[in-house]
Amino acid sequence: MNPIDQAVRWLNDPLNWTNPGGILDRLVEHLGISAAAVALGCLVAWPLGLWLGHIGRGGGLVVLVSNVTLAIPTIALLTILPLTPIGFGKPPVILALAVFAVPPLLANAYTGIRQVDPEVREAARGMGLSGGQLLRRVELPLAVPYLAAGFRTAAVQVVATAALASFVNGGGLGQIVAAGFGLGISVGGGQILAGGLLVALLALLVELVLALVERLVTPRPLRRAVRRTRRRADQRATAAITGS
């Protein structure tokens, strides 16, 4: 029997869905861990990114953070954090995933504030707005599309990376794949494939839903302008990374 038939058969068994540690349990676990990690990432990255954008400094820091996290393997954080005073359980997994959520959130919050038209900022100042009022009433609303884009990138990445938590028995849909490998490929091949399929579908689903959300929170007149400036921001970021 080929792996695809095996996978279909495995997915068709209702007990595989409803058993303790079945697909539904794992799905809830996966979403819970991911949501907590993204929330934690937002809590740290957004205030920092908005503030750095507001004072117009720290662009180098933003690039540095994304470069360093690119080179750190997820598995390293997942195995190291439980051995620190944080201890075992969900918190180290959530923290490890949050670390990988920070770069896109931070970079987009920073760019979102920086791209605000200097003339708009001048006008706001001229109307007598203080620094805090400027950030809250002018810069923040104009940065919302960027915050949404960063949120989408971070959330998709966290949902994808959360599958790796299974390496340290951290729960989530990855456990299904890991259990399949535990059975060996000839027996567990279908389960491996089915688990992979579920993880991939979840990631694509999150991507689609959040793309829709991103569209909804971007006011229509801003849509085209946002796309244009973001492309320019990407190029600048690439140039900064390569040092050219």
Binding site: V159, A160, A203
Partner: peptide, 21 residues
């Protein structure tokens, strides 16, 4: 881009049953 969205664990899980470990 779509291939890039697929989580690494899922991708390895797709390939492993065919190419082995």
């Amino acid at each position: 881009g779509a291939l890039y969205t697929i989580p690494s664990l899922a991708l390895f899980a797709f390939i492993a049953p065919y190419l082995g470990t």
